[in-house]
Amino acid sequence: MFYPNSPQTSPQLTQIPYGQQYAMMQRQIQQPYHPFATTEPQARLYPYHYQGPIQQEQGGFITQQSTAASPQYVQMRVTPVDQSIMSGYPNQTANGSSSSSFNYNIHPQQQQQQQQQQQQLRHHAMPVGSVPLQDDRYRKQLIVNYLAPDVTSTDLHELFSRFGELDGARIIYDKQTNMSKGYGFVYFCHAEDAKEAVERMSGYEFHGKWLKVGYSTNPLNIVPSNSSPYVHAGSRGAAG
C-alpha cells in the first residue's frame, strides 16, 4: 500500500523548493479562506456584503464582478436614472436638479381664491374633541361614552347635575331594538360647569363602566337656548 506522503511516492527534499517541504498533501497545500485577509477597505468593513468592485458596462447597466450573493443577503441591482424623465418638472436647472418651490404660472386672482378656499376649509374642519370658538353652545354640550346598558337618562342627569344647572341629558337608544347604544349627551347651562365635568368625570366608574367624557361637536345635538329642557323620564321611549 502506498500513501500520498510515503517515501516511495514523495520526491527528495532537495528537489522541493524551500517553504513547501512540509506541504505535501493536497489539504495542506490548499490555503484556508480568510474573509478579512484583503487589501480593499470595503471588504474589511463589510465582509458579507462586499463582492468586489463595481464596473460600468456598455448599455448603462451596473453589474458586479463577483458571483451571486448568499441567500441570506439580498443584493440590489441599481440602474442609472434617465434624465429625460425629470425634464417635465418646473424650475429645473441645466444640471438636472430642481428647486423646492414650484411655479405653475397661476393667475394671481386664482391663487388668492385657492388660498381663501383653504382658509375656509381649515375654519370649518374641526378635529374630534375640539371646541370651536365662534359658538358658545359647543362648550356646553358633552358626550358621555361607555355607558352601561342599564343607565337611563334620569341617572345621567343626576350624575352630572352636581356640577351645575343642566339644560338636559339623554341616552341614545336603538330604534329597532330599543336598547341603549352605550353613549349619551349632557347639556349644561354654563360653559364653566361643562369644563369642570369634563375634567372630573373622564375615567369615572359608573355602573361598572369607566366613562369617557368630552365635548360634543355635532351641531345636530345642540340644544337651542330658547327651547324647553328635555324630559328626564326613566322610560326608554321618552328618553330616546
Score class of each variant (00 low, 15 high):
residue 107 H to Q: 04
residue 44 R to V: 15
residue 224 P to Y: 09
residue 104 Y to E: 06
residue 116 Q to C: 12
residue 107 H to T: 07
residue 136 D to Y: 11
residue 153 S to Q: 07
residue 40 E to P: 05
residue 131 V to C: 13
residue 138 Y to K: 01
residue 57 E to K: 03
residue 213 V to Y: 01
residue 208 G to I: 00
residue 92 Q to C: 12
residue 88 G to A: 12
residue 26 Q to N: 14
residue 102 F to Q: 09
residue 12 Q to E: 10
residue 51 Q to W: 15
residue 20 Q to T: 12
residue 216 S to Y: 00
residue 9 T to M: 14
residue 181 K to E: 00
residue 46 Y to P: 03
residue 225 S to T: 13
residue 199 E to Q: 09
residue 27 R to L: 15
residue 103 N to W: 15
residue 174 D to Q: 06
residue 9 T to P: 03
residue 89 Y to S: 03
residue 186 V to F: 09
residue 144 V to P: 02
residue 240 G to Q: 13
residue 147 L to D: 01
residue 53 P to I: 15
residue 8 Q to V: 10
residue 211 L to T: 00
residue 223 V to S: 04
residue 60 G to W: 15
residue 62 I to G: 07
residue 58 Q to G: 11
residue 9 T to S: 10
residue 171 I to G: 02
residue 35 P to V: 15
residue 69 A to I: 11
residue 109 Q to V: 13
residue 48 Y to Q: 04
residue 164 G to N: 02
residue 194 A to T: 03
residue 93 T to V: 09
residue 55 Q to F: 15
residue 4 P to Q: 08
residue 63 T to F: 15
residue 200 R to G: 08
residue 45 L to S: 06
residue 48 Y to S: 07
residue 115 Q to F: 14
residue 136 D to I: 05
residue 14 T to R: 06
residue 211 L to G: 00
residue 32 P to D: 03
residue 120 Q to K: 07
residue 125 A to G: 11
residue 188 F to C: 03
residue 46 Y to Q: 05
residue 176 Q to A: 07
residue 158 E to F: 14
residue 164 G to D: 02
residue 221 N to G: 02
residue 216 S to R: 00
residue 175 K to D: 00
residue 34 H to R: 11
residue 222 I to N: 04
residue 165 E to K: 07
residue 138 Y to G: 06
residue 95 N to H: 12
residue 203 G to Q: 03
residue 206 F to A: 00
residue 96 G to R: 08
residue 135 D to Y: 11
residue 121 L to F: 13
residue 231 V to F: 11
residue 146 Y to V: 00
residue 133 L to P: 07
residue 40 E to M: 06
residue 38 T to C: 15
residue 53 P to H: 13
residue 212 K to G: 01
residue 27 R to S: 10
residue 180 S to R: 02
residue 32 P to Q: 07
residue 184 G to K: 02
residue 191 A to M: 12
residue 58 Q to Y: 15
residue 196 E to F: 11
residue 197 A to H: 06
residue 201 M to C: 02
residue 78 V to R: 05
residue 18 Y to V: 05
residue 237 G to S: 10
residue 31 Q to R: 06
residue 42 Q to G: 06
residue 138 Y to M: 02
residue 114 Q to K: 08
residue 136 D to N: 06
residue 198 V to E: 03
residue 133 L to W: 13
residue 127 P to C: 09
residue 106 I to K: 04
residue 76 M to R: 05
residue 150 D to S: 12
residue 175 K to R: 14
residue 33 Y to Q: 13
residue 34 H to N: 12
residue 180 S to F: 07
residue 54 I to L: 08
residue 94 A to G: 05
residue 55 Q to M: 13
residue 20 Q to G: 05
residue 184 G to I: 00
residue 234 G to A: 03
residue 177 T to C: 03
residue 34 H to S: 05
residue 230 Y to K: 04
